[in-house]
Nucleic acid binder design. Structure first.
Lengths: 338, 338
DNA sequence: TTGAAAGCGCTACCAT
DNA sequence: ATGGTAGCGCTTTCAA
């Protein structure tokens, strides 16, 4: 409606149009409309509507010292499926809080991190979310200073508030899926468990917990990077060397994909000959045949929770461990009676 | 170093510390340091460093009417792998331009779109990127008004500046992969080609171009949604009905996954019995065995190009079609001499 | 119940 | 070469 050449309409214009001061106009348009007569209130509202007034949020922020913006710095989380749902969760929660997300990627460049953080601070964000694609321990840029910050999918020492998956309990759940189906023998772990990899260590701990409680243990462990090809190669070699697993615990879905391929190549069926359980619940898990039973990453909830914490009234603290959802599908069966 | 309880240091403080006016301080700290003596310049720089001065970008923006922020509204692009690289491309380019990205997701809710756009405008973004997960024609919220905007992976009428994949040429490339390998007979298309789906129509057009030029055509077309399970079911049924394809053109990688599974179930090998070519170049493509030859989506470049256009000196116009990269892997072989 | 005026922290104009 | 000062568009005392 409004001619596009016209200059932006200001609060002052609305006030003038309604024959009030801009102070009063600000009051009612800001929703803090105590102490103003119903009549003037309506006049102002109507004027704003007629002129199609849009407040300049920068000006407001400068005055109020609140930007209703939160900064999110990720290492490389938006790539390759991982982490995308963290952002969606954060986006959803931000929207509910009336905030917007300023997103940066450091591309894993440690030089870039403080630069990005500085810039966000300069832009007056109300808080910062710091997140990584894979659950990890991180060094934080000193420039984070006394900003309000919560870590997502990573942890730091000294401990800053953070939200991560409850990997230990996830590990337990995975093992339970197998033991509940009756598995005790020939359970083999696929995927390396490096000491510095938090998810590996914790999933393993949970797995061993439950296995031990069922009076058993892994029959074998196959060490390989968490990728399909590496898992295929390693498992194929192990199979060729005579390994005859009854159940596989894959440390993520990519590994499970490689395992499926190796099993198929060796003429072994899932779950008839070998049961498979995994972690992550990526899209892949539901696409595989048979569909993969897997312990999911609560990414969406992590993003959402982090924002709630960041924007909550009491300053966040401690590490919040979110439950990993159990997705039972078709890759687990009782051990065959061979 | 600085005590965290101290109030933020202002330009005024730096100026005072260096015994100059804030006008002069602004000049040198803003990098527009003509007309100022080297001596004072150094004094100001040192003062800023000592006090750890960080300019308040909101204040600057309010004054200069430039926020160095660009808004990106997506439907649901950050989910499920698709579209993530568009954002990474946009992020990278924004960084180079000294801009930051304000990201929103409308979750496909048409009610939300104008709200988000309005909010971005209110936040004084320098421009808006409008993008969708799947290449499509879109209605734009009227509130986009006279904002500077470029569409990514979608198109509108009347045509706004937009950047999309060159699907027709991509279709040609896919067909060429097959004809170059010697295929003429038993080429079948897998995946539905709805009239309103831009990528389907255009890929098909390119495919038919090249096939016709090679004096052939699809031997059959299998209509199914672009998902693994649907493709598996449809192809399995076709195979059971006696179809004996020599080559498959799958309209995306998910369909190709379903096709691989159906082929394997029917005892057919790739590429020995059947060659397969696909579109998208998702991670999946390189994980499949044999690795899938596929025509990639230039997502990263789309994001990057869109930002360059948006921030370029001359106002963007027209639709830019970016080449789809050809990823030759191991799923295509000459037709077997059966 | 309302309005005048003083800022938020910065940049840009016009003096000197 | 430098400084005083007037805004950017809003909110928030404080006085009327």
């Amino acid at each position: 409606m409004a001619s596009s050449a016209r200059r932006r309409v200001l609060l002052r214009d609305v006030a003038e149009h309604a024959s009030v001061s801009s102070a009063t106009a600000s009051l009612v348009l800001g929703g803090r409309d105590v102490r103003v007569s119903e009549d003037t209130r309506q006049r102002i509202l109507r004027a704003a509507r007629e002129l199609d007034y849009r407040p300049n949020l920068m000006a407001r922020s400068l005055r109020t010292q609140v930007s209703s913006t939160i900064g999110l710095v990720a290492d490389t989380i938006i790539t390759g499926h991982y982490g995308g749902d963290i952002i969606r969760g954060a986006l959803t929660a931000s929207l509910e809080h009336g905030h917007r997300l300023l997103i940066c990627e450091s591309e894993g460049d440690p030089k870039l991190e403080p630069v990005l953080v500085d810039d966000l601070v300069a832009r007056q964000v109300d808080g910062i979310l710091f997140t990584t694609a894979s659950h990890d321990a991180v060094e934080l840029p000193a420039s984070l200073g006394d900003q309000r910050v919560v870590l997502v999918n990573c942890e730091s020492t000294p401990a800053l508030p953070s939200v991560v998956p409850d990997e230990v309990e996830g590990g337990r759940a995975a093992a339970r899926l197998l033991t509940d189906a009756g598995h005790r023998d020939g359970i083999v772990l696929v995927g390396e468990t490096l000491a510095r990899k938090l998810p590996a260590q914790r999933r393993l701990q949970g797995l061993l917990d439950v296995l031990a409680a069922a009076d058993t243990d892994f029959a074998d462990r196959i060490d390989c990077p968490w990728w399909p090809e590496a898992a295929f190669d390693a498992l194929t070699a192990a199979l060729a060397a005579g390994l005859r697993p009854r159940a596989l615990v894959c440390l993520n879905d990519r590994v499970a994909l490689g395992a499926y391929q190796a099993l198929a190549a060796a003429g072994l069926s899932v779950p008839g000959d070998v049961s498979v359980v995994s972690f992550d619940d990526s899209e892949l898990a539901s696409w595989l045949r048979p569909a993969l039973s897997t312990i999911g990453l609560p990414e969406f909830e992590m993003g959402r929770t982090a924002v709630d914490l960041l924007l909550g009234s009491d300053p966040p603290s401690g590490v919040v461990r979110l439950p990993m959802p159990v997705r039972e599908r078709a890759s687990i069966a009782p051990p065959s009676s061979r």
